[in-house]
Amino acid sequence: MKGMDKPVKYAYFPGCKIPHHLPEYGQSVETVCAALGIELVPLEFNCCGWPMRHDNELASIFSAVRNFAVAEEAGLPILTPCKCCFGNLKYAESRLAEDGKLVVLVGRLLAQDGLAMPKSINVSHLLSVLDEQVGVELLQRQTATPLAGVKVACHYGCHALRPGNVTGFDDPLAPTLFERVVTALGAETVDWDLRLECCGHPLRGRDGVIAESLMRKKLENAASVGADIIATACTYCQLQFDKERDGLMLNDPLRKAPPAVLVTQLIGTALGLDASVLGMEKNCIPWRVPVLQDRTL
C-alpha cells in the first residue's frame, strides 16, 4: 500500500479521553494514518482546555496555548482527531489574536514552565488533513474494499464546525467535507435534518435529560432516513453515540438505531485493514460490516 507522494508529519494530539475511554479511536487513527503515510509524532501534550472552559477561561486558554508551545518546540503542526480538542485549540488561538491582555497573562504562565509564547499556531482536525493533505483521490485509490451500499449519516459535531469564524473548519451552515471523505470510500451518504445538530454529550453530567434527548433525536432522525451507520470524527460524539447509548435500557429501540462508527474505522475497513487493528470489537453498539467486494478480486 502506498501513501502520499510527500510524507506529512504531525504532532499527534489524541486528547484526554482516547487513552482510557475510547482506545479504539486512538488505535484506528494510528493504524489508518500509518497506512496513509501520515506520520504521527507523540508529544507530551496536556489537556486541550475544553473541559475546564466552563470553570475558568484563563485556565482553559493557558492549557491550549501550552500545547501550541510544546508543538512549536518540536516544530510540528498539531493533528487532533477530536473535534472538541480542535474547537478549543482554535478558540484559544482566536482569543489570543483579539486580546492583548490575555497574551501577556498566558505568556507569563508559559514562562513559569520554561516555555515561550508560540509564534505560529497550526492545528488541524483529522478530517481536514484527510481532505486537504491526503485528498479524496488518494483515498479512492487506496480503497481496497469499497463500502458500496453502505448508507452513512455523517455527524459533523459542533465544536469543529462552529463558530465558523473561529474554527475555519468548513462552511458552518453547508459543510461538505465529511461527505466528501466518506463517499471517497465508496459509501453512500444520506441527507438528514439534524445532520449539524449537537450529539448532546457536553451535557452529560450537567443535564442528563437533555443530553439524552438530543442523542435520541439524532438517532431517530438518522434511522428514519435509512442510514446504516452514523459516522463520527470526534471522541465525544462517539462516546455519546456508542458508550452512552449502551447505557440505555436493553429493550430501547434506539439500541437498534444505526451504530456509530469512527471515521478511521470506516477508512480502515475500506482500506482492507483487519477489524481488530481498528478496535472494532471495542464498539459497544457493533457495526455488522456487510460483506464487501474486494476491488482486487
Binding site: G164, N165, D171, P172, L173, A174, T176, D191
Partner: peptide, 20 residues
C-alpha cells in the same frame, strides 16, 4: 428555503462561504 440552498448549491459545485 435556506436549507434547500445549503444542500443544493454545494451539489452544483458552488463553493459556499456561509456567514462570512
Amino acid at each position: 428555503l435556506r436549507a434547500v440552498f445549503d444542500r443544493g448549491l454545494p451539489v452544483l459545485g458552488v463553493r459556499t462561504l456561509s456567514q462570512k
